[in-house]
Amino acid sequence: MGKIKKTISRILLLLVLILVSRNLSAQQVLLDKNVEKQDVRNSFMPERGPNMRHFWGRTFSYGFIIPLSYADSLQIKSNLASNSLGLGYRYKLKLSEFLSIGTDIQYLRSVWHIEQGSRGNLIQQGVRHHSQKLITNDIGAGVYVRVNFARRGNTLGKFFDAGTGAQYVFSNRLVTTDNVEASKNGGANKIKTAASGLDYVNPIQPYILARAGFGRFAIICRYRLSNLFSASENIYGGRTLPNLSDLTIGLELTTFKAERPEPEREE
């Protein structure tokens, strides 16, 4: 027992000596600046950046599908529950201080909450569900022209974009929920039905857009040019279904990694 204590004491003493000796030999440099490396004239002006020749950024958008009333349209609920969530990647090529062009690729997930009117809903004519929503997942690409409005440093600044593109719907789903009597349905008082692979959803959705940006944030306004649906022999008497709202207004956030202007920095 005494031997173990002695060994532990020696180890502790050794540790203390190591710590003390390290402290004695350490340099106490509080500030060390190499001005040559900091010289902005020598500093590397990045090719990439929000106000540089090339810019890449990730985009996140959330928009409300606006319940517009057209005579020939299928109604969506007016509570702004219908929405569109987007994730994308953006490239911008600066042509001049005030003009740029660019391209986007993006994934969009859109949900339309379809109003169950007095005639039921048009997809399944005469049938009224408790709720019904159409979900589409699509990927797409677009191009845009950007006009900037004020002088700025290496920031996105204030801009207006006008663009166009197309989305490809790679999956879709129609989900309906009905309230039912539990006694007749095995104890369930709600039945949810999901139908996917709908052949009446138009797979190609061209659009135009306008974007007003304030730095990383932008108000986005996207308008679908085609009908959401296409004709199918299996529904609506072989005719094309009335369209769903084609206007989305929302917010977009652009994120990117800030470039350091110097090629290297002091520790």
């Binding site: 004695l24 440099v29 500030l31 060390d32 600046k33 040559e36």
Partner: peptide
């Protein structure tokens, strides 16, 4: 070209 601040102490 360069500048530093050192804390004087019993060190090099």
């Amino acid at each position: 070209k360069r500048y530093n601040v050192f804390e004087p102490g019993k060190k090099l």
